[in-house]
Computed example of a mutant assay.
Amino acid sequence: MELQKQLQNEKAAPEGKPSLWSSLFGKMDVRAYTMVGALVLIWVLFGLLDPTFLTARNLSNLFTQMSVTSILAIGMVLVIVAGHIDLSVGSIVGLTGGVAAILSNWMGLPAIVVILGTLAAGAILGMLQGWLVAYKMIPAFIVTLGGMMVFRGALMGVTNSMTIPVSDSVLALLGNAYFAQGFGIIIAVLAIGLIVWSTLKKRRSRQKYGFEVAPLGVDIIKVAALSLLVVLFVFVMNAYKGIPFPIIFVIVLAAIFYFLSTKTTFGRHIYAIGGNIEAARLSGINIRRKTMMIFLLSGLLASIAAIVLTSRLASATITAGNMAEMDAIAACVIGGTSLMGGAGTVLGALIGALVMTSLDNGMSLMGMESFWQYVVKGSILVFAVWLDISGRRKGAK
């Protein structure tokens, strides 16, 4: 079998050089391409069923709507990769959003104090749960399920089950402001420059250490495709009001956590823990500290999502963040994160979040009953998990 596979590879790539197909797709996550294709089909389908779906205004609203799910999914990726689950992030969004509204409305504190207080609250709640999971050996499912109920109850208690308005002008900008068109153009130029620079740096690095390098034409195609996506995104956003402020949160956090998960020792340790916890322990990784840290980061990101959501709604409600944890988990799984641990990417989670939000947005525009949204999203989640399990079984054979 091994000899047969080797001969097939040699036919596909004569003289040791990678073929065009393998260079473009061979080393990439096929599941990610599948999700991108599914996203395109969803957009085309809803665009045909409702012409308003693909308008600049609706797409701008769609990207704004996905910001909360995206931020939660970024944190959830690390939790799931490490072999755990966090069912409490939706309730943390609600509770920390209530804290932000109380600090701003009832106590009259300045916006910077409100933001720092909200972030601190989210980090503390996440760290507490991480401590119970890591040091008291309570399963994450039980800890975060209890946290989901406790935090939701605490929200009802501290707010007296009332909606608390938020009128601070600075806080209002965080979830509702748009950047000027010129800023979008600058972002596009910088993004394209970064794509070109990173591609060239990767080629030089691989050449320096004697690794296989894809044909230059393949990298040019990839750079051109990514650059085109950046230009289209900025063009569409500028056609309405400009880039929504919440999307900048998502982009910055995605960049930070992409770097954290792929370029740091901490990130490599998280994947090692999720891949084989016993091997990680024997290699000297401090599993308890890393576990507590990922839950702290998850809580911190939930508080950031709370600030964005509270700002968008201009109020804190007892239903804020309800079922948000399910959307975040679904976004991760749809984007290729394995519930078995050890596999998953931030980019995949963002694609999953965009898929989930597109379904919500499209079905809402069509006037479909809300129960259909749950049916469709739940079915897609089960299908994504089935794909993951099927892929692992095939790989094990």
Rank of each mutant, 00 (worst) to 15 (best):
86 D>T: 13
223 V>D: 08
198 S>Q: 15
291 T>P: 04
336 G>R: 05
264 T>N: 14
284 G>R: 04
232 L>P: 00
1 M>N: 02
388 D>Q: 11
290 K>A: 15
241 K>R: 09
160 N>A: 12
111 A>W: 10
107 M>R: 09
353 A>W: 01
321 G>V: 03
376 V>R: 01
251 I>Q: 02
21 W>R: 12
21 W>P: 08
205 S>W: 06
160 N>F: 15
331 A>E: 15
365 L>M: 15
300 L>K: 02
379 S>K: 10
73 A>C: 09
376 V>E: 01
390 S>L: 03
355 V>H: 08
229 L>T: 11
114 V>I: 09
30 V>F: 13
185 I>L: 15
270 I>Y: 10
329 I>C: 03
199 T>D: 11
89 V>R: 12
64 T>E: 07
55 T>A: 14
307 I>Q: 00
143 V>D: 01
113 V>F: 10
128 L>M: 13
370 S>I: 15
359 L>N: 15
130 G>V: 06
49 L>E: 05
138 I>T: 02
147 G>I: 11
249 F>Y: 08
30 V>W: 12
341 G>F: 00
17 K>N: 07
259 F>H: 03
362 G>K: 06
191 A>Q: 06
299 G>R: 14
106 W>A: 07
245 F>Y: 03
396 A>N: 03
77 V>F: 12
32 A>E: 05
33 Y>C: 00
269 H>W: 13
161 S>W: 04
104 S>I: 13
1 M>C: 00
55 T>R: 11
2 E>Q: 13
